[in-house]
């Protein structure tokens, strides 16, 4: 049976359909999870896609944490369920406290929308385990607040526990350690600023994003164990 992925939609989310299309093209099943629902139903993994949840009022991702679905997602994640936050989804995961650190405005104060070369660092997460350390991926970014920042203590932990999944080859936004994506210690909660759902066809300039989302379909720790 194919894996069923829940793709969360907040008011202001705008990448949900691209994620659903990609997951379906890869042979998975996908459904929208409305932010106002207090249950995630029977999905095997969750994507929190990009956009501007609740208008990004106050701070990116700050209001999203009060949506009822987030309580259900936190419960799912804490019991080992795989959750991938992309762009605004990554910001929401840090604001919710499911991932460490924060994302602030890009150095240079420019909204960046461009292809980036990424280097796979740790392969210990649920998605990272389908990659080789040192591999390069071409996946675009599309953000204003993608400059990852954390305390030196958190940075040492990220390094020590193999939580740094992706780094930029040439740091476009000022992120500490050129970080483009991280996971929690357990490896089941993953956040990344680049948009894998926008690198899914040669027409788009890269198909490397397919591998990230396929990793989500195949790499479900909870269901494969």
């Amino acid at each position: 049976m194919s894996q069923r992925i829940g793709v969360v939609q907040f008011p202001g989310t705008n990448c949900e359909q691209d994620n659903i299309d990609t997951i379906k093209n890869l042979g998975g099943d996908a459904e929208i999870l409305w932010h106002g629902s207090d249950t995630i139903g029977s999905v095997d993994a969750i994507v929190i896609p990009g956009g501007f949840a609740h208008g990004d009022y106050l701070r990116c991702g700050a209001i999203a944490r009060f949506s009822p679905i987030m309580t259900a997602i936190s419960r799912f994640a804490k019991s080992g369920g795989v959750v991938l936050g992309i762009c605004n989804g990554f910001q929401i995961l840090t604001e919710t406290g499911l991932l460490p650190g924060a994302l602030q405005k890009n150095v240079g104060l420019k909204f960046l929308c461009q292809m980036e070369s990424l280097i796979v660092d740790s392969t210990s997460s649920a998605i990272g385990r389908w990659f080789k350390s040192g591999e390069k991926l071409q996946i675009p970014i599309n953000h204003f607040e993608g400059n990852y920042v954390c305390s030196p203590e958190v940075m040492s932990e990220l390094e020590a526990y193999g939580q740094i999944f992706l780094r930029y080859e040439s740091n476009p936004n000022g992120s500490i350690g050129s970080i483009a994506g991280i996971s929690n210690k357990e490896g089941n909660i993953i956040g990344m600023m680049p948009h894998p759902e926008r690198a899914t066809s040669d027409l788009l300039g890269s198909i490397d994003g397919n591998r990230i989302l396929r990793g989500l379909l195949e790499g479900n720790v909870k269901n494969n164990s």
Binding site: K105, G108, L109, V149
Partner: peptide, 13 residues
């Protein structure tokens, strides 16, 4: 305001 030690590109501009 941004914490001291945290880059503030808007303030710098």
């Amino acid at each position: 305001s941004p914490r001291s030690g945290i880059a503030d590109p808007a303030g710098a501009t």
